[in-house]
Write a protein that binds this DNA or RNA. Structure first.
Lengths: 216, 216
DNA sequence: CACCGTACTATACACTGTACGTTATGGATG
DNA sequence: CATCCATAACGTACAGTGTATAGTACGGTG
C-alpha cells in the first residue's frame, strides 16, 4: 500500500474539481484548500500544477471557453454575430462563475483565442477593415460581458431574501418628488434587469448601428 | 487625557479613508483592518457604523456616484445620453475601484438613484415609452460598465510587466494557421482595448441604433 | 451624583493563500 | 536487477483576512 500515491492528480482533474466547487459554493466560498480537500490531498499539492490561485482561475476560464460552439457558416454575418454573442451569454448563465473569471483577469489561453478568432473572422469576412473589426469585437465582447454579469448579479440578488427586502426598502424610500422617473418606471426597471428580451434589445441596437456601417 | 476618546469617527470619515486606501493600494490589498489602522482605531470600531465589509463598499460606491455632474438641459437628447455615459466612464477611470464596486454589488443608495433618475428622465422626455426607456437605461448602463471595467483591467495589465510579458508570449504562441484573424489583427486589438475612441465607437453604435427607434 | 446607552477595545476563531523544507516513489539508467 | 534522481505530494508555519463575542469607559440625561 502506497503511503503517498503518485500521479493521482492532473491539471484536468483539478480544473474539473475546481469548477464543480465554484458552481456549488459560488466564486466566493471557493478556495484552494477546498479543492485540495475534495481531492483528498494537501493544499500544497495543487502548486505542482498551478503557480497560484489566479493561474487556476485562468485554466478554469479557458476550459469553459472551450465549451462554446463553432460559428455556423450558412447564415448572414449579422446572424453569425448574434449567434456568438448569445452563445457566450448562455454559457455565462449556465456557469455563473464565468462572469467573474472573465472580468477579473486578462484573457489568455488557446480556447479563449479560438473564440476571438471566430468572431473576428466573421467580421473580416463581412468586409470590415481591420480597425473596425477589432473595435467591433471589443465592443460586442464588453457588451455581452457587462450585460450578462449584471443579469447574473441581479438574479442572485433576487434569490437572497434579505438583499431583496433591502432593495424594496430603498426603492420605497425614494420620494416621487425627487425621483419621478425612477419611481414611475420601477416595475419596468425590475423587469428589464435580465432575460433574453433585454439582452437581445441591446444586441439589436448594436447590430442596427453596425449595419449602417456595412462596407459596400 | 482620554484613554478611549469618543466621537472621533463618523461614517463620512470612514468612507473617505476607505476610498483613499482603495485608490492607493487597489481594491485588493484593501482591508477593514487597514482602514482601522489608518484611523488609529481597532478593527471592530468600524462595525459601529457599518454592518460589514459589503456595507462599507456600498457606502463608498454611493459616495462616488454623488460626484457625477447633473445632465445639461440645453442640448438634444442624444447628446444628453452621451454626456451621462461619458461622465460615468470618466468617473470610473478617475476612481478605478468604482468598477469593482459597481459590478460586485447591487445598486443602492440615494446618489445612485439620482444618477438613474437623470438618464431615465432624459429618455422619457425624449418620448420613449416606459418599457423602452427602462430597457435602454439598462443597456447603456451595462455597456458603460462592461466597456470601462475592461478598459481599466487591460490598462492595469499593461502596467504589470510580468503579466504583459506573459500576454506577449501567448500571442506569439498562436499559429497564424489556426488563428489567422487574431494574429493579423493583433496590433489593432492591442490598440482597441480602451481609450476615448474605442468607448465612443461602441456608444455611437448604440446611439445610432437608438435613433432608428426615435418616437414620432 | 447616578445611570445607561453607546462608542470603542480586546480577545479569539475559523479561514485564507502560499513560502519553505522534507519525504518517498516511480521511471530511467547502469 | 540494483541504483539514482527528478518530482509529486506532504507537513508545518506565517501573515493575513472578516467578524463574533464580551468587556470597558465615556458623555449626555435623569
Amino acid at each position: 500500500m502506497a503511503r503517498t500515491p503518485r500521479n493521482t492528480l492532473s491539471s484536468e482533474l483539478i480544473v474539473r474539481t475546481a469548477l464543480e466547487l465554484m458552481e456549488s459554493k459560488g466564486t466566493d466560498g471557493f478556495s484552494l484548500r477546498g479543492v485540495a480537500a475534495e481531492l483528498g490531498v494537501g493544499p500544497m499539492a495543487l502548486y505542482t500544477y498551478f503557480r497560484n490561485k489566479d493561474d487556476l482561475y485562468d485554466a478554469v476560464r479557458d476550459h469553459l471557453m472551450g465549451l462554446l460552439p463553432a460559428v455556423p457558416e450558412d447564415v448572414e454575418w449579422p446572424e453569425q454575430v448574434r449567434f456568438v454573442c448569445r452563445s457566450l451569454r448562455l454559457l455565462m448563465l449556465q456557469h455563473p462563475c464565468l462572469a467573474q473569471l472573465l472580468s477579473g483577469r486578462p484573457l489568455s489561453g488557446h480556447e479563449t483565442a479560438r473564440v476571438a478568432e471566430g468572431l473576428l473572422g466573421v467580421l473580416r469576412r463581412a468586409g470590415f477593415d481591420p480597425e473596425t473589426a477589432a473595435r467591433t469585437h471589443t465592443t460586442l465582447f464588453t457588451y455581452v460581458l457587462g450585460a450578462t454579469s449584471w443579469e447574473i448579479q441581479m438574479a442572485a440578488e433576487r434569490r437572497d431574501p434579505e438583499a431583496w427586502r433591502r432593495l424594496r426598502m430603498t426603492m420605497e424610500s425614494l420620494s416621487a418628488r425627487d425621483f419621478p422617473s425612477v419611481v414611475e418606471l420601477a416595475p419596468e426597471l425590475a423587469r428589464t434587469t435580465g432575460g433574453d428580451e433585454q439582452f437581445d434589445y441591446g444586441l439589436d441596437l448594436l447590430l442596427a448601428g453596425l449595419r449602417l456601417r456595412t462596407p459596400s
